[in-house]
Amino acid sequence: MEKLRRLKYKKEVQFGEDVKIKTLAEHQMETGVRRDNLTGVIYPRLIIQSVIARYNGEIVFKANWFSGVSANPYLAFFIKAKESGLIEIEWKDDHATTSYKRGYLKVLDEKGNEILPVKYGL
Protein backbone atom coordinates (compact mmCIF):
# COMPACT_ATOMS: atom_id res chain seq x y z
CA MET A 1 0.00 0.00 0.00
CA GLU A 2 1.30 3.43 -0.90
CA LYS A 3 1.81 5.66 2.08
CA LEU A 4 1.31 9.37 1.87
CA ARG A 5 4.34 11.58 1.27
CA ARG A 6 4.08 15.33 1.03
CA LEU A 7 6.42 18.03 -0.23
CA LYS A 8 5.58 21.72 -0.12
CA TYR A 9 7.58 24.81 -1.04
CA LYS A 10 7.36 28.10 -2.91
CA LYS A 11 7.47 27.18 -6.60
CA GLU A 12 8.89 30.41 -8.03
CA VAL A 13 11.71 32.18 -6.21
CA GLN A 14 14.34 34.83 -6.83
CA PHE A 15 18.04 34.03 -7.11
CA GLY A 16 19.81 33.70 -3.75
CA GLU A 17 16.63 33.34 -1.78
CA ASP A 18 16.33 30.82 1.06
CA VAL A 19 13.52 28.41 0.24
CA LYS A 20 11.72 26.74 3.10
CA ILE A 21 10.95 23.13 2.24
CA LYS A 22 8.30 21.36 4.27
CA THR A 23 7.93 17.60 4.15
CA LEU A 24 5.53 15.19 5.77
CA ALA A 25 5.55 11.40 5.73
CA GLU A 26 2.78 9.12 6.87
CA HIS A 27 4.47 6.54 9.06
CA GLN A 28 3.71 4.80 12.32
CA MET A 29 7.28 5.12 13.71
CA GLU A 30 7.08 2.13 16.06
CA THR A 31 9.68 2.66 18.79
CA GLY A 32 10.41 -0.96 19.71
CA VAL A 33 9.67 -0.28 23.37
CA ARG A 34 5.88 -0.52 23.31
CA ARG A 35 4.27 -3.66 24.70
CA ASP A 36 0.94 -5.27 23.84
CA ASN A 37 -1.28 -5.10 26.93
CA LEU A 38 -2.95 -8.48 26.46
CA THR A 39 -0.13 -10.74 25.33
CA GLY A 40 2.92 -8.82 26.56
CA VAL A 41 4.63 -9.08 23.20
CA ILE A 42 6.85 -6.14 22.27
CA TYR A 43 6.17 -4.64 18.86
CA PRO A 44 9.40 -4.66 16.81
CA ARG A 45 10.97 -1.38 15.91
CA LEU A 46 10.03 0.15 12.57
CA ILE A 47 11.05 3.74 11.95
CA ILE A 48 12.25 5.99 9.17
CA GLN A 49 16.00 6.01 9.61
CA SER A 50 17.10 8.76 7.31
CA VAL A 51 15.80 11.54 5.10
CA ILE A 52 18.00 12.82 2.29
CA ALA A 53 17.29 15.97 0.29
CA ARG A 54 18.84 16.41 -3.15
CA TYR A 55 18.88 19.55 -5.26
CA ASN A 56 19.82 18.86 -8.88
CA GLY A 57 21.30 15.52 -7.80
CA GLU A 58 23.52 17.05 -5.13
CA ILE A 59 22.96 16.22 -1.46
CA VAL A 60 21.88 19.38 0.33
CA PHE A 61 20.59 18.15 3.67
CA LYS A 62 20.52 14.92 5.59
CA ALA A 63 18.63 13.75 8.67
CA ASN A 64 19.32 10.60 10.71
CA TRP A 65 16.43 9.70 12.95
CA PHE A 66 16.13 7.40 15.95
CA SER A 67 13.11 6.20 17.89
CA GLY A 68 12.53 9.59 19.52
CA VAL A 69 10.92 11.19 16.47
CA SER A 70 7.14 11.40 16.56
CA ALA A 71 4.73 9.48 14.36
CA ASN A 72 3.91 10.99 10.96
CA PRO A 73 7.18 12.93 11.00
CA TYR A 74 7.15 16.52 9.81
CA LEU A 75 10.40 18.15 8.76
CA ALA A 76 11.15 21.67 7.56
CA PHE A 77 14.52 22.99 6.40
CA PHE A 78 16.04 25.62 4.11
CA ILE A 79 17.94 25.48 0.86
CA LYS A 80 19.51 28.30 -1.12
CA ALA A 81 18.14 28.84 -4.63
CA LYS A 82 20.91 29.02 -7.21
CA GLU A 83 19.43 27.58 -10.39
CA SER A 84 16.12 26.04 -11.30
CA GLY A 85 16.00 22.29 -11.12
CA LEU A 86 14.81 19.16 -9.41
CA ILE A 87 14.19 18.84 -5.69
CA GLU A 88 14.10 15.25 -4.51
CA ILE A 89 13.38 13.94 -1.01
CA GLU A 90 14.19 10.36 -0.11
CA TRP A 91 12.82 8.57 2.97
CA LYS A 92 14.63 5.41 4.02
CA ASP A 93 12.99 2.80 6.23
CA ASP A 94 14.33 0.24 8.71
CA HIS A 95 13.76 -2.41 6.01
CA ALA A 96 15.75 -0.17 3.63
CA THR A 97 12.64 0.46 1.57
CA THR A 98 12.80 3.90 0.06
CA SER A 99 10.12 6.29 -1.05
CA TYR A 100 10.60 9.46 -3.04
CA LYS A 101 8.87 12.74 -3.70
CA ARG A 102 10.07 15.10 -6.40
CA GLY A 103 9.29 18.62 -7.49
CA TYR A 104 10.52 21.34 -9.82
CA LEU A 105 11.87 24.65 -8.48
CA LYS A 106 11.89 27.68 -10.79
CA VAL A 107 14.54 30.30 -10.05
CA LEU A 108 14.33 33.76 -11.66
CA ASP A 109 17.03 36.40 -11.91
CA GLU A 110 16.48 40.16 -11.51
CA LYS A 111 15.09 40.64 -15.05
CA GLY A 112 12.61 37.80 -14.64
CA ASN A 113 14.41 35.26 -16.79
CA GLU A 114 14.74 31.68 -15.64
CA ILE A 115 18.22 30.51 -14.62
CA LEU A 116 18.66 27.11 -16.21
CA PRO A 117 21.00 24.48 -14.73
CA VAL A 118 22.59 23.79 -18.13
CA LYS A 119 24.33 26.60 -20.00
CA TYR A 120 24.34 26.41 -23.80
CA GLY A 121 27.27 28.13 -25.41
CA LEU A 122 26.44 29.86 -28.69
Binding site: V19, V60, A63, S67, V69, S70, Y74, L75, F77, F78
Partner: peptide
Amino acid sequence: EKGTAEVSFRCR
Protein backbone atom coordinates in the same frame (compact mmCIF):
# COMPACT_ATOMS: atom_id res chain seq x y z
CA GLU B 1 26.74 27.13 1.17
CA LYS B 2 23.46 25.20 0.95
CA GLY B 3 21.01 27.47 2.77
CA THR B 4 20.55 28.39 6.42
CA ALA B 5 20.92 25.87 9.22
CA GLU B 6 17.41 25.95 10.57
CA VAL B 7 15.27 22.86 11.11
CA SER B 8 11.88 22.25 12.68
CA PHE B 9 10.39 18.89 13.48
CA ARG B 10 8.46 17.06 16.19
CA CYS B 11 9.84 14.69 18.80
CA ARG B 12 8.65 12.32 21.50
